[in-house]
C-alpha cells in the first residue's frame, strides 16, 4: 500500500479511526453540555415563578385577595395586621414617577445629542463615563441620596423630612439615566442614514431632522427604552430602602417618606423571618406583584425593540 511517497505522506496525515470516533463523541457530549447550560436559564425562571406562586398561595389562604387589592393599610407585622398593597404601590409608583420624570426627558435629550450632534470623539469619550455611572453600586447611590441630596433639598424645601421619596426619586433618575440614554440612542442610530439625508436634502435643520424624522422613525425603540426604564425603577431597592424610610404610607406626596414593594421585602428580611410566619409569606405575595409588573414591562419593551430591529 505505502509504496509511493504520496501514499506515505497521506498515511502520515490520515486521522486514526479511534481519534475520529473520540472526536465525534466529544462533539456530541459538548453539544449536550452546552444545551444543558442554556436550559439552566429556563429553570431559573421556572424556579422564580414556582417559589413566588407557591408561597403566595399560602399567603392568600390567610388573606383574601379582595383585601389585598382594595385595602389601603399595610401593617402585616402589627398585632392587628392589615394587608392592603396600595400603600406599597403608591410608594413604588411615586418614586418611579419622580425617577422617570428625570430619566426620560434628560435621557432622550442626551440620546438626541449623542446620536445626532456629538462628534464621534465626544461620543467615544462619553460612553465610558455613562458606563461607569451605570456600574456604581446602588447602595452608594442610596448613601448619596440620604447623606447629600436630602440635606441639599432640605435647604430649599423647609420642613422636608429626612426620609422622603423626592430625594431617592431624583437620585434613581440619575442612576437610570445612562440606561435610558443608551437604549434610546441605539434606537436612533438604527434609523437608516438615507432617511436623515432625505430630510437634510429638503433643507431640514438638524433639530427638525431629529424631531420630525429620527424620533418618529425610532419611536418604538424609544418607547421600549422608557418602558424598560420603568421596569428598572419599579424593581430598584437599595436607594429607596436607605433614603425613603421603610414605613408603609398610602400617599403620592413626594415630600413624605414611604415604603415601596422592594423596601418592604428588605424590611422584613432584616428582621426575623420565620418560614410560615405571615411576614415571610407576605414578602412573596408582594414579590409576585413586583415580578408580574416588571414582566409586563419587559415583555412590552422586548416586543417594541424587536419591532424596530425588524423594521430596519
Amino acid at each position: 500500500m505505502l509504496n509511493t511517497p504520496d501514499d506515505q505522506l497521506r498515511a502520515a496525515v490520515t486521522p486514526a479511526p479511534n481519534f475520529l470516533r473520540k472526536r465525534a463523541m466529544i462533539d456530541k457530549l459538548a453539544r449536550c453540555i452546552l444545551f444543558a447550560a442554556a436550559a439552566v436559564s429556563v429553570f431559573v425562571t421556572i424556579g422564580i415563578v414556582y417559589i413566588l406562586v407557591s408561597e403566595s398561595l399560602v399567603f392568600f389562604e390567610n388573606v383574601s385577595l379582595t383585601e389585598f387589592l382594595t385595602s389601603t393599610t399595610w401593617t402585616p407585622l402589627f398585632a392587628a395586621p392589615s394587608f392592603g398593597i396600595w400603600p406599597l404601590l403608591s410608594g413604588t409608583l411615586t418614586v418611579s414617577a419622580i425617577a422617570l420624570s428625570i430619566a426620560i426627558p434628560l435621557g432622550l435629550l442626551l440620546a438626541i445629542y449623542m446620536s445626532e450632534y456629538a462628534p464621534p470623539k465626544v461620543r467615544e469619550a462619553v460612553k465610558p463615563v455613562l458606563e461607569m455611572l451605570e456600574g456604581v453600586p446602588t447602595i452608594v447611590y442610596g448613601y448619596f441620596a440620604l447623606m447629600m441630596v436630602t440635606p441639599l433639598l432640605q435647604a430649599f424645601i423647609p420642613g422636608l423630612p429626612g426620609f422622603n421619596m423626592l430625594s431617592p426619586g431624583i437620585v434613581m433618575g440619575i442612576m437610570i439615566l445612562p440606561y435610558t440614554t443608551s437604549l434610546s440612542e441605539d434606537a436612533m442610530r438604527a434609523v437608516p442614514r438615507e432617511l436623515r439625508e432625505g430630510a437634510y436634502a429638503l433643507g431640514y435643520s438638524r433639530f427638525y431632522t431629529a424631531i420630525k424624522v429620527v424620533i418618529p422613525a425610532a419611536i418604538s425603540g424609544i418607547t421600549a427604552a422608557f418602558i424598560l426604564a420603568m421596569s428598572r425603577a419599579v424593581g430598584e431597592t437599595m436607594v429607596v430602602a436607605i433614603a425613603a424610610g421603610q414605613m408603609a404610607n398610602f400617599t403620592f406626596n413626594p415630600m413624605e417618606g414611604a415604603a415601596t414593594i422592594t423596601t418592604f421585602i428588605v424590611q422584613v428580611s432584616l428582621g426575623d423571618v420565620r418560614h410560615g410566619s405571615i411576614g415571610y409569606q407576605s414578602i412573596f405575595a408582594v414579590g409576585l406583584v413586583l415580578f408580574l409588573m416588571t414582566l409586563l414591562f419587559n415583555v412590552i419593551g422586548f416586543m417594541l425593540r424587536r419591532r424596530y430591529r425588524l423594521a430596519y
Binding site: 436559564s41 431597592t237 412573596f284
Partner: peptide
Amino acid sequence: INVTNLAGVPSIVYGLLALGL
C-alpha cells in the same frame, strides 16, 4: 426570550428565589 426577561427581573426577586428555594 427567557434570557432577555431574566435580565430585567429585579435583583430582589432573585433574593426571594434564593430564600424560598
